[in-house]
Design a protein around this nucleic acid. Structure first.
Length: 623
RNA sequence: GCCGGUGUAGCUCAGUGGCAGAGCAGGUGAUUUGUAAUCACCAGGUCAGGGGUUCAAAUCCCCUCACCGGCUCCA
C-alpha cells in the first residue's frame, strides 16, 4: 500500500497520521530502495509500505534476526567474539563470528535463550549516519577489528550507517524492523566454518545459521520441511533400500552400485540410449586410462591438474593418467577418418566413467564423488550448425528430464570471460547462436556475463525437485580450444580444411549425481518403470506357494521385475516388508484367488484395489 | 584442504573409569496365517585404527582415518 509523506516527516509519523498501525508494517520502499519506518522524507513523496506478506519484509526480518543473534553472542562472549558480517540467505540468515574459543552446536540453545531475552526487552532499532572516520573510531573503540577492516578496505562512501539496539551497535546498510520485539519466531540451526571474506587463504571464522519467520506456523512448517528433506536424504534411503554404498575400505567418493541401484541405473541408461540413437548419436567406448601425452596435448595436465589423480609411471618409463574427462578420446574418434562437411554434425556419445581428485571435505553422498559416469557426448559441427544443434539439444533435454517429472528449469548462459582462446568473431557468432537457440526454444534464461569457460560459452540448466530445491545437471559447453589443440579438421565444400566447433554436453550430468537427486525427488518411491522390484507376490500362507509360483512365472516371463515372498509369515508382516521396500505393486494370493484363478492387487500408498485375472493385471499396469 | 561435531553388532541406538547391552535385521524351530510387526531359542563385537594416562579405558589425553554440518570448489 502507498501513502503520501510530507517533507521532513518520518514514515512512522505519516502512518499514524493516516490512522494506520505501525505494527502492520515492517519497512517501506522509497524511490525503489528499502528504508526503515523511521526514515525521514527529504521532500513530499509517495512511499510504499511493506507488510509481512511481502518477501522483502521477510528478508529484513531475517537480517534483523542476524543482528539480534550477534547481540546475544556479544552479551555472552563479550570481546571473546568479534562480529564480521551477517546477511539474510534464502532460508534464513547467518552471522560469521570470530570466536576466541570455538563454540559448538550445544552452545546454540544458550544463545537462543539470550535472544529471547532481548526480544522481550523490545529494544528500539535505531539508524544513525556517521562519517567513515567516526565509524572507524567507534568500532576501534568497541574492539571490533573486522568492522574496522571492512570500513578501511571495502567501503568507499564517506558517510556510513550504523544500527543501535540497546548496548549493541553494528555497521549496516539496513533497513531493519523497528524493534527487537518484532522478531518473535526464530531458531538457530547449525554452526559451521566459513572463511573471512570467503577466501580459503583467510582465517576460518565460525558461521551460525538460523532462520526467522513472522509466524510460529511458518517456522514450524519450515522445521517440518527440513525434517522431510532429511528423511528423503539419498544417503539414508540408499542404504535402507539397498541401492548403493560408499564404503571406507573402498574409498571416499567411490560408489558401489548395489543390485537394486544398478537395476534402476540400467533402466535409465537404456531409456536414454534408445532416445539418443534415435537422435543420431553414435555410441562409443573408450579406455579409463591413457598415455599422459594425450593429456599434455589436450592441456588438461596444465590446466586441470589439481583435479586429476597423480600420473602413474610404469617400469618401461611410460606415463599413464586416469581420465578426468572423455573429450580427448572423442576427438580421437573424430580423427579416426577424414571427415567431410557431409559427416557433420557428428554426434559421439559415451557413458564415460571419469575420475577426479576432489578434496576429501567436499565429498557428499552421490552428489559429489571421485568416480562417476557422465552421459557424455561431443558434437562436432560447423559454426553455422551450432544454433540448430542447440535447439535440438534443448528439446531433447526437456524431453528426457520431463520423463522424470522435472519440468521447471532455470537456464543460465555464460559468456566470454576476460581471458579466452579462439577468435573473437567466432565467440560473437557462437554467443549469438546460443541466444537465438534459447529464444527459439522459448526458454527463459539469465545471462552470466563473463562467466564462460576460457575455451567457450556455455548453457547450464538447473532443475527444481519435488521439494523445490534446485540442482544443476545438464550442461552444454562450446569448445574452440580442443579442436585447435588437436588440429582436427573437416573438408568443406570448397575442398579445403576447416576447424569444427566442438560441443560438450551432458543431459543427466552424471548417473551418480542424477541418481542422488532422483532418490530425493521421489523420496525413494520410484515410479513403476524405474522401480527395482515392480511387483511382489505375497502368498497368504505357504499352502498357496504353488499357485503363487505360477503367477510369479507368468510375470517373470514377460520381463516384469517380480519377486515372491515364500516365508512362513502372516500376510500383514509380508505387506509391511513390501511397503518398507517401497515396492509399487503387491499381489495377494490365497484360497479365493487360487479358486478363481486370479490375483488381489494392493497398490503401495493406496491399498487394496481389488481382484482381477493375472492377464487383466498385466494389461492394466504394463501394456 | 579448512572449522566444528560424530564414530559401540548388518541397521538404529543405550552404556561417561570397574563383567560389552537393547530393538530391528540374520539363523533355527514352532505356527500356516487375508491387507503395515506371531512366539521361542541361537548367533553376531579389534567399542574406527594407533599411541598414552591408570591397578583398571568403549569411557580421560594425543595422533591418524572415515563420516556428518558448513566454507571453498564442482557433473
Amino acid at each position: 500500500m502507498k501513502i503520501k509523506v510530507q517533507k521532513d516527516k518520518t514514515i512512522r509519523e505519516s502512518i499514524e497520521e493516516n490512522g494506520l498501525k505501525i505494527e502492520d508494517f515492517v519497512v517501506a520502499c522509497f524511490n525503489g530502495k528499502l528504508v526503515d519506518l523511521s526514515f525521514r522524507a527529504p521532500n513530499e513523496s509517495e512511499i510504499e509500505l511493506i507488510s509481512e506478506d511481502d518477501h522483502r519484509a521477510l528478508e529484513v526480518l531475517r537480517h534483523s534476526a542476524a543482528h539480534l543473534m550477534a547481540q546475544a553472542v556479544k552479551r555472552i562472549y563479550k570481546n571473546r567474539a568479534k562480529i564480521t558480517i551477517g546477511p539474510p540467505v534464502d532460508f534464513g540468515f547467518y552471522y560469521d563470528i570470530d570466536f576466541e574459543n570455538p563454540i559448538s552446536e550445544e552452545d546454540l540453545s544458550k544463545i537462543e535463550e539470550e535472544m529471547k531475552k532481548i526480544v522481550h526487552e523490545d529494544l528500539s532499532i535505531i539508524r544513525e549516519e556517521i562519517t567513515k572516520d567516526q565509524a572507524i573510531a567507534l568500532f576501534k573503540d568497541l574492539d571490533e577489528n573486522y568492522k574496522v577492516l571492512m570500513l578501511q578496505e571495502d567501503i568507499n562512501e564517506d558517510v556510513v550507517s550504523i544500527y543501535r539496539q540497546g548496548e549493541f551497535v553494528d555497521l549496516c546498510r539496513g533497513p531493519h524492523v523497528v524493534s527487537t520485539g518484532r522478531i518473535k519466531h526464530f531458531k538457530l540451526l547449525s554452526v559451521s566454518g566459513a572463511y573471512w571474506k570467503g577466501n580459503e587463504r583467510n582465517k576460518m571464522l565460525q558461521r551460525i545459521y538460523g532462520t526467522a519467520f513472522f509466524s510460529d506456523e511458518e517456522l514450524k512448517n519450515f522445521i517440518q520441511r527440513r525434517e522431510e528433506a532429511k528423511k528423503r536424504d539419498h544417503r539414508i534411503l540408499g542404504s535402507q533400500l539397498g541401492l548403493f554404498e560408499i564404503e571406507p575400505t573402498v574409498g571416499g567418493g567411490l560408489v558401489i552400485w548395489l543390485p537394486k541401484g544398478e537395476r534402476i541405473r540400467y533402466t535409465i541408461e537404456e531409456f536414454l540410449r534408445k532416445k539418443l540413437e534415435e537422435k543420431g548419436y553414435l555410441f562409443v567406448r573408450t579406455p579409463h586410462i591413457a598415455n599422459a601425452d594425450l593429456w599434455r596435448i589436450s592441456g588438461h595436465l596444465a590446466v586441470y591438474n589439481k583435479y586429476m589423480f597423480p600420473i602413474m609411471e610404469t617400469d618401461e618409463e611410460q606415463e599413464f593418467v586416469v581420465k578426468p574427462m572423455n573429450c580427448p578420446f572423442h576427438i580421437k574418434v573424430f580423427q579416426n577418418a577424414i571427415r567431410s562437411y557431409k559427416d557433420l554434425p557428428l554426434r559421439i556419445a559415451e557413458y564415460g566413467t571419469v575420475y577426479r581428485y576432489e578434496k576429501s571435505g567436499v565429498l557428499h553422498g552421490l552428489l559429489r564423488v571421485r568416480g562417476f559416469t557422465q552421459d557424455d557426448a561431443h558434437i562436432f559441427c560447423t559454426p553455422e550448425q551450432v544454433e540448430n544443434e542447440i535447439i535440438e539439444l534443448i528439446d531433447l533435454t526437456r524431453y528426457i528430464l520431463g520423463k522424470f517429472g522435472f519440468d521447471k528449469y532455470r537456464v543460465y548462459l555464460s559468456t566470454r570471460p576476460d581471458e579466452f582462446v579462439g577468435d573473437i568473431e567466432l565467440w560473437n557468432l557462437a554467443e549469438k547462436s546460443l541466444k537465438n537457440a534459447l529464444d527459439k526454444a522459448g526458454m527463459e534464461y539469465t545471462i552470466n556475463e563473463g562467466e564462460g569457460a576460457f575455451y567457450g560459452p556455455k548453457i547450464d540448466v538447473e532443475i527444481t525437485d519435488a521439494l523445490s530445491r534446485t540442482w544443476q545437471c545438464s550442461t552444454i559447453q562450446l569448445d574452440f580450444n580442443l579442436p585447435q589443440r588437436f588440429g582436427i579438421y573437416y573438408i568443406g565444400p570448397d575442398n579445403s580444411k576447416h576447424v569444427p566447433v566442438m560441443i560438450h554436453r551432458a543431459i543427466l550430468g552424471s548417473f551418480e549425481r542424477f541418481f542422488g537427486i532422483l532418490i530425493e525427488h521421489y523420496g525413494g518411491e520410484f515410479p513403476l518403470w524405474l522401480a527395482p522390484i515392480q511387483v511382489i507376490v505375497l502368498p497368504v500362507s505357504q499352502k498357496f506357494n504353488d499357485y503363487s509360483e505360477e503367477v510369479f512365472n507368468f510375470l517373470k516371463n514377460r520381463q516384469i521385475r517380480v519377486e515372491i515372498n515364500r516365508d512362513a509369515e502372516k500376510l500383514g508382516y509380508k505387506i509391511r516388508q513390501a511397503e518398507i521396500q517401497k515396492i509399487p505393486l503387491m499381489l495377494i494370493i490365497g484360497q479365493k484367488e487360487k479358486e478363481t484363478n486370479s490375483v488381489t492387487v494392493r497398490q503401495k500408498g493406496i491399498g487394496d484395489i481389488g481382484k482381477m485375472s493375472i492377464e487383466e493385471f498385466f494389461n492394466k499396469f504394463f501394456s
